[in-house]
Amino acid sequence: MNLQQDICAAFCDGLVVRQVPVGFAISTPVTWFSGDTISFYARVEGERARLEDSGSLLFDLEGQGVDFSSENRREILSGLLSDHGVSLSEEDGLFCTEWVPKEKLATLALPFLSFLARIQDLLFLNREIVKSTFREDVITALEEEFQEDRVSFSEALIPSLPHYTVDIVVRAESGKIAAVFPATNDVSVLRAVLFSMEVQKHDVANIVPFVIYENLDKGAITQQSREIAFNSDLTPAVWSGGRDEVIKKVSRYVQ
């Protein structure tokens, strides 16, 4: 038995390279969460080349509920990109390596494959996948009520407190701002409480902080956190009590 040869065969037997218009399609023996094998592409332009995904990787991840507007996931993604020498081309909407001379392209293959295998980890961080439907529903309803460009995300509203970010910011025509925290877990509720305390402490007049619960069943939010929130200056609302009533309430408070 020659283990090195056996392992080498296990890797290489699963490797398939096929010519496509952009350059080459490279299929690997590593499996993607969907059961498909992980594949990537070599884009060849004259004497230079780079590796890139199919252009549907972001689509597949977002389609599984991965929320790239979340600060936590952006940080993880940023770490993965820099660890593997990969960048996210905003213009092209795909993950790619740097351009290198064609003959050096193969050296990028393993780090890029490792990146593609690891980016799946974002799916398993999706503890709030069900909760994120709630968050998304709140965003959709706010965008319907106010104009879409009046709704933004993960924004620090108090300049002297850049770490106090607000999940959903709604800028009303009146000049007032709704700072909305969907209560997806204890941390989000306590962040909302801290933010409302800072608003009071800094005597900020035009910001109204809200915490919106999906429902009042015992679940992701502990009773202690709920009690702290109810006794704070936060304006509470409960989504299960009626989506329209919640949105009207936000609307009324920022008129």
Binding site: L57, L58, E62, G65, G93, T133
Partner: peptide, 22 residues
């Protein structure tokens, strides 16, 4: 071309990003 908005194919995210070439 470009991202598929939720209004066109309504999954839970507000859009689905399809990159260059799609």
């Amino acid at each position: 071309e470009g991202p598929v908005p939720r209004a066109q194919f309504p999954l839970i995210r507000s859009k689905l990003s399809l990159g260059r070439g799609w």
